[in-house]
Design a protein around this nucleic acid. Structure first.
Lengths: 389, 389
DNA sequence: CCACTTAAGCAACGGTGTTGCCAAAGTGCA
DNA sequence: TGCACTTTGGCAACACCGTTGCTTAAGTGG
């Protein structure tokens, strides 16, 4: 009967070119992770499950493209020593922008995500689209002007507070700035900058940055980044890639109800974690901070139980102001729950490194991550505007 | 320094055989979804993104294996009419077992998941491993005895209440039955039955069944199944595949804290959704049920916001007893939150179909799902014991 | 009856990872 | 110093994937 169903692609078929891209991304990701130390062909073969010969061919192509170079050799173990391969950091660059309420940060990073240049300027996010876009364009121009990058810039990743649609790059309702509702930020900025643009929530950018810079430990491929600043939000990384959900709205954490019929929150709910946390912080005492950490911990515990993740990372201005206290307070709740759960090891809780630049640097990773196969978790299609090298 | 790192496989490399398997699974999944109506080669090509010729080759191989047959043709649209292809349901079978506290259900299903034969017997889950395993073996023998399946049984999927490790098939602590703690159910049962065995939590089995039998709507590739019976649990389906988390422990929903410092729960926490829900149900009045639904709804709302899923399905004995009331009550909370969130459409809430057989049938899908590429969401490796046809 | 349209297979092809083999480049013992 | 051994990594041939170009099959419509 329904012969006119839309061509809803279930999952993408894989052809040879997709195959090559997948394996190349995998190899690049291992090279990226290895960093300065590099990694040998045979190790790449072990880690990917591909044959050494296949790895030789893949790395050969990557060397031909200038993305990889040979860099010394390991000590021999009784035979020919392994040749070490290293990612050429300068083979590509990415721009990261963080449009915050009162500030605009921009960075230029190389392929490894290392910052090559950075700028910082005051911003009034409420000043209207034209003003903000002009400021963004000015900052990016200045950034590329002194940097060497220029030609090899792959695109610009933009982090914005509040909900938006990552897939089409349209803002929903930046908290406190209703004038942005429905604004097609991605396309507008792409035209202005002449670069492919990817936009995402600030918490997602931060989480992606943490996922890629090794802040999450070695085996920790799934974690949550909880950001407590002027608001409370989360970014989820599942299986090494950012999880954005069906409509790219995942990570709503601050307005989880954790106190039925509790105090009213601005969002209209009662007993939201955000409201409770911020109220406790507002008390200003150490006991207030401890209470905030406890509330945050209970929320984190809920999340850990639901998703079975490997770690919890805390960040944001409010956390930074009392880092140890928050880490300890949240950890205490998780430990207690793990203990009662019986035997299960507690999930590690840590402060996210990076501080105020965490989000901008993560924004640049919005462009880089797809190159390394870290584009998206559990999503059918995976298209964004980034150029393919 | 750390040259002795374990061969921790990041993500699997793809070779040609994996490529073929992936595309074949994709095609099989579309054929399965199409059901009796079948699907044409060209439609398969559109949906997968593969070329028509590639689909012809793939379906040719599948026809050679006896998994697919031509079954009539569509009406012409001005040219040669499309040939309809259909999955051969009887080309393979799977056994499903549901080890419940007081009952053992078993089913034999065909490739489409349709039940071919089923049995039901009383069981005392506390009677010890030998007794339970013997009962399981007896029931499976009887099931295969009268059914035609026999030779083409691909494996047995087993659903068990309470936490376990899906990866190695070891039970953790079935609530109320400490004697099972640490029991290697998968291996023990595999030896006894002479079949590959996969074990999982009952809620996961149910969610998987719902994911595959089309109970979740057409575009609904991500949803949560909330089961309210003697306890409260959840099964998560993200992107069409079951999400099990890093240590396959995901879906802990009943012991999410939703009332800080609320009434004590058996688990040791305070204010767990499960405790609040069951207490409200225990009141026995309609207002009690409404309150339980409201609490469940707040929990569901938290989950929907965090994961941005497409739907919420409710099941379990307690829900069945007042289905409409629960659906309405949960829906009301989600609607209210979506309304306040501003514009976002509310997520549909429905009662899960299937009733008491939902879990057994889902257990069989533990064997079938990997054949259709629905094995696991966001997980590095994806090995289980199922034979490859 | 014939022109046209649409579906599906055949044959050749480009390109993937794999296999078998060999050269390169070390170690270690006589 | 020389030689056997180990280990790495490339070369060549290969099997097999999906793709492309073309042909054949099987309908509709004037």
């Amino acid at each position: 009967m329904n012969s006119h169903v839309p061509p809803a692609r279930t999952t993408a078929g894989f052809n040879l070119s997709a195959l090559r891209g997948h394996n190349a991304a995998l190899v690049l990701d291992l090279l990226r992770t290895a960093g300065e130390a590099g990694i040998s062909r045979l190790e790449l073969a072990e880690r990917t499950g591909l044959t050494p010969q296949a790895v030789s061919k893949i790395t050969g192509r990557l060397r031909g493209d200038g993305l990889v170079v040979e860099a010394g050799r390991r000590a021999s173990t009784g035979g020919k020593p392994r040749t070490v391969l290293r990612l050429v950091a300068g083979a590509g660059h990415a721009v990261g922008l963080h449009l915050d309420r009162d500030e605009l940060r921009t960075v230029l990073t190389d392929l490894t995500g290392a910052v090559v240049a950075s700028r910082r300027a005051p911003l009034d996010l409420g000043a209207g689209a034209d003003t903000v876009l002009a400021a963004a364009a000015r900052e990016v121009d200045a950034l590329l002007g002194d940097g060497e990058g220029g030609a090899s810039v792959l695109g610009a990743g933009v982090a914005v507070p509040g909900p938006l649609d990552h897939a089409d790059g349209v803002l929903h309702r930046v908290t406190g700035f209703p004038q942005w509702d429905g604004f097609p930020l991605r396309d507008a900025l792409a035209e202005r900058l002449g670069l492919p643009v990817v936009v995402d929530k600030d918490t997602n950018a931060a989480a992606l940055g943490l996922a890629l810079d090794g802040a999450a430990g070695d085996g920790e491929r799934s974690f949550a980044y909880l950001h407590l600043g002027t608001g409370l939000g989360a970014g989820l990384v599942l299986g090494g890639a950012l999880y954005r959900g069906a409509r790219t709205g995942a990570g709503e954490f601050g307005h989880q109800v954790i106190q039925l019929d509790g105090p009213a929150c601005d969002c209209g709910n009662r007993g939201c974690i955000e409201a409770l946390c911020l109220a406790a912080v507002a008390v200003g005492t150490e006991r207030g901070t401890d209470e905030a950490a406890r509330v945050l911990g209970e929320g984190a515990g809920n999340l850990v139980g639901l998703l079975d993740i490997d770690a919890v990372l805390l960040g944001g201005r409010t956390v930074s102001a009392a880092e140890e206290r928050f880490v300890r307070g949240v950890g205490r709740v998780l430990d207690a729950r793990a203990m009662r759960g019986g035997g299960g090891r507690a999930i590690p809780v840590r402060a996210a490194p990076g501080g105020a630049t965490l989000v901008v640097e993560g924004a640049a990773q919005l462009i880089l991550a797809p190159l390394f196969g870290r584009g998206d978790a559990a999503l059918p299609a995976n298209r964004n505007g980034a150029k393919v090298i």
